[in-house]
């Protein structure tokens, strides 16, 4: 059971990685150059799937957090952590990619684009959940804290997005993205599947490792033996006092 999910996790990660290579070969060398942005536009094939993946894994973490809170089972706790971790890694990648894209396109590494700003806020919000988790030793309390912090942070995602969008639209037009031509669609979709599989594979691996750690931490030692009956007959004298 355990080894099978390790194998599955590793296999999914490998397939995901292989697909990623294929997608980027297609994206970098086969797909036509993007009309407005030129070769810079090819970052699209990694950037957009990363964004989808980050949101998807946060959503998964949100669901697992509800499961963890509801059932109190460590499997859900480990799954929450695994997906928050994968989502956070993707968010950080997203921030780096977004800045790299923004520099040649908008002339700056950082802009108050709703998507970029939301990613930054999410990276902070979910990163702290992982930090919080490290600081609590008691397993039950840690599971609860992780779960509620994940739920509270996830609910913030749409609010942050719309508030920044609104805030932004009042002093500069929101960056619009062109509709994507079909020859560009193919590598994009392959890359999306690749990121998804890679993320799932890593989540499964991370989930198993975390679960094994949690179970080892809480492995029940044998109950102590029932005590020997106490013999009072040898008690000498009346109580002192």
């Amino acid at each position: 059971m355990t080894s099978r999910s390790y194998v599955a996790g590793a296999a999914l990660s490998a397939i995901g990685f292989a697909l990623l290579v294929v997608a980027h070969y297609l994206g970098l060398f086969v797909a036509p150059r993007e009309a407005m942005m030129g070769d810079v536009g090819r970052i699209l094939y990694v950037h957009v799937p990363t964004a989808w993946g980050a949101l998807l894994f946060y959503l998964g973490a949100f669901v697992a957090a509800i499961g963890s809170l509801w059932s109190g089972r460590r499997g859900w706790d480990a799954a929450t952590t695994a997906m928050v971790e994968v989502g956070t890694v993707m968010t950080f990648l997203l921030l780096v990619q977004g800045s790299l894209w923004a520099r040649p396109t908008w002339g700056t590494y950082w802009t108050w684009d709703p998507r970029l700003t939301t990613s930054a806020v999410l990276a902070a919000a979910f990163g702290v959940v992982l930090l919080l988790r490290r600081l609590i030793d008691q397993p039950a309390r840690r599971a609860t804290a992780t779960a509620v912090a994940t739920i509270v942070a996830f609910v913030d995602v749409p609010i942050v997005y719309f508030s920044v969008k609104w805030w932004n639209s009042l002093h500069q037009p929101v960056s619009s993205r062109q509709t994507i031509d079909s020859p560009m669609m193919q590598p994009l979709l392959i890359a999306a599947v690749a990121v998804l599989l890679l993320g799932i594979g890593l989540s499964v691996l991370r989930w198993r490792v975390e679960l094994a750690r949690l179970l080892a931490e809480e492995a029940a030692p044998d109950l102590p033996d029932a005590p020997a009956p106490l013999d009072l007959s040898g008690a000498s004298g009346a109580p002192r006092g």
Binding site: D137, P139, E218, A219, A220, P221, L223, A226
Partner: peptide, 13 residues
């Protein structure tokens, strides 16, 4: 009645 803290049984049976 049993209560465990980590790997230690604080109260057992």
């Amino acid at each position: 009645l049993c209560r465990r803290f980590g790997r230690r049984w604080a109260v057992a049976r």
